[in-house]
Design a protein around this nucleic acid. Structure first.
Lengths: 147, 147
DNA sequence: CTAACTCATTAGCCGTGCTAACTATTCCAC
DNA sequence: GTGGAATAGTTAGCACGGCTAATGAGTTAG
């Protein structure tokens, strides 16, 4: 039974991996032409909008990337004027990143629109399929957080 | 009802998108040190192992990438000796890509091992969660194929 | 026979992950 | 207090893998 279970899971892992890879590729390509921010940058902006100001390290941990990657992303957002960097008040090593008014406006304006493609596809699904995906989203997120 | 459904779906789209992005990043980083092929190259090799010889264009369509991207990936696989390219027998424009013996051996050897990380995590889940993911995998794949 | 189309490729751009090495700061032990 | 370890962020540089535009070769239609 263990063998069967593992064999089945190996197949599931394979399918899940392929599906995730392809869907991500699809989503990354679905950026709106009039939005100059990449899908990753919008992700960071969304985290900041939800959780308030965060240090670069916290952002890196939240997005599961290494600090240098987040430094680069944050710098791009600073250049577009969507976030602000300021020194930490008590720890001179840390940098606090804060979403700007423009950034908040962009998040608000894009919140619905940026998920338009996926939301439209989801709307075409049967309700029970949406329920499956709703539960799966939480599971996928927890998988991404592991180890 | 439509409004409620759409509002809920927008949230689901957002969560699903973030989860897919993060999990994919996680998976891409989990390449086995002793396997010199990237996760994308292994994906193409897997398609060839399942579906037999295919043209570059068919592979590009199957993986939902543009032809130049697939040309590059295939050329990498040619260099590692995992696939062979030969001219199409009746149409001189097309190139047929075929998996080599070494490629088949690699797929066979890696089929279980390459999903080790994900399979291990899946094994830790409750059976009903695995069932959710099993159904979700098919749904995600169909979403990736749309339009 | 020519024009239009198709398939693959080349060239080149961009985003985004990584590691290694460096700077600045903080914390701790003594 | 001071010297060394630890921590935060950055810089530099590499790799991968998408993309578009343009090109070449081959096919097909008129």
């Amino acid at each position: 039974m263990t063998t069967q279970g593992l064999a089945t899971d190996a197949g599931l892992a394979s399918e899940l991996r392929l599906a995730v890879m392809r869907l991500r590729r699809r989503l990354a390509g679905e950026r709106h032409p009039d939005n100059e921010l990449s899908i990753n940058q919008m992700g960071v902006l969304g985290v900041l909008a939800r959780r308030g100001e965060m240090t670069v390290g916290e952002l890196a941990a939240a997005e599961k990337v290494q600090p240098p990657s987040m430094t680069r992303t944050v710098n791009c957002l600073v250049e577009t004027g969507d976030v602000l960097k300021r020194p930490h008040e008590s720890d001179g090593r840390q940098i606090v990143v804060e979403i700007s008014e423009q950034g908040q406006a962009r998040v608000a304006a894009d919140r619905v629109r940026r998920d338009a493609w996926l939301a439209r596809r989801l709307d075409e699904l049967a309700p029970e399929d949406r329920e499956v995906l709703r539960r799966a989203a939480a599971l996928l997120e927890s998988l991404a957080q592991k180890d």
